[in-house]
């Protein structure tokens, strides 16, 4: 007690020796953290930069820089295997994206902004199930299931792969749509009903336009996720159904070539573009 009193009486240390301007005690700073952060950034981007750099290197070596050239890109564009795989990847991704986004939008409408109802936790559980099971498990389970169906019905085709992609795309599409709906003011829809709009017109004129950025964001994620998938495609795809990642992994088994750098760079660029778009949409929310 007495100590506390004397301390109050002594002049405040900071006041007697003022710290240099703008260099006061920063409560948020922790020493060394900034260094680690910059290091992480370097670690995350350096390998990708190397990949991009050597994709425009006019040399078979993927280590020694000679001079700039687009030649590997030309080879990629003229490579039939890559063309094929790209078209297939896009086909699968587009269909999976459309179906998953539509289905996720509907589900999001029915699982937000209501009082908790019986069965709601189960519905959440089901929709998020693909996120909770390791990819390899989903892959072998889906493979077994499809094998059984193929055996029973004799039907084959790209449909299986698309269906498998749709399943794991749904929770990714669902996340931003649901987030958007939960941010949305319920009274807007009530205001619309109050102003003589039928439920359908309320959806079309109020709910849907406000939800659109969320739907785009969800579609974007679904598309990226489908495009990127390796494990499930690898196990589920039938013969001749190589998506781009499957094609790449197959080529890598035979050795690292500059064409792989070029095709990877293109892939990277597409992903970054889509994610940037997603970021912009997510910020449009505010």
């Amino acid at each position: 007690m007495a100590d506390a009193v004397t301390q109050v009486d002594t002049p405040v240390r900071g006041a007697s020796s003022p710290s240099p301007k703008g260099r006061g005690f920063d409560v948020k700073r922790l020493p060394g953290f900034a260094t680690v952060a910059w290091m992480c950034l370097l670690v995350l981007y350096a390998p990708m930069l190397v990949l991009v750099l050597f994709s425009v290197n006019d040399n078979r070596s993927v280590t020694i820089w000679t001079k700039f050239s687009w030649r590997w890109y030309e080879e990629v564009i003229n490579n039939e295997g890559i063309q094929h795989a790209t078209v297939l990847s896009l086909k699968v991704a587009v269909v999976a994206m459309v179906v998953a986004t539509a289905v996720a939008t509907m589900a999001a409408l029915a699982t937000t902004r209501t009082r908790a109802y019986r069965g709601l936790p189960v519905v959440y559980g089901i929709i998020n199930q693909p996120l909770m099971v390791p990819e390899i498990v989903t892959a072998v389970a889906t493979l077994s299931f499809f094998a059984l169906i193929k055996q029973a019905t004799g039907v084959t085709g790209l449909g299986y792969l698309i269906l498998a992609h749709t399943v794991f795309c749904i929770p990714f599409a669902y996340m931003p749509i649901r987030a958007r709906l939960e941010d949305m003011d319920l009274t807007l829809e009530q205001a619309s009903a109050d102003l003589y709009a039928t439920p359908w017109r309320t959806f079309r004129r109020v709910t849907f336009p406000l939800l659109l950025p969320g739907i785009f964001a969800g579609a974007m994620l679904a598309f990226v996720i489908s495009l990127d998938d390796v494990v499930i495609s690898l196990l589920v795809a039938g013969p001749g159904e190589s998506t781009l990642p499957i094609y790449i992994i197959g080529q890598l088994r035979r050795g690292v070539t500059p064409e792989m750098n070029a095709v990877s760079t293109i892939f990277l660029a597409v992903s970054i573009l889509l994610v940037t778009f997603f970021f912009v949409l997510a910020r449009a929310r505010k």
């Binding site: 003011d185 009274t187 009530q190 406000l210």
Partner: peptide
């Protein structure tokens, strides 16, 4: 018609 407390403007 209702004037909502938070206005609920679209």
């Amino acid at each position: 018609n209702t004037v909502f407390q938070n206005y609920a403007l679209f």
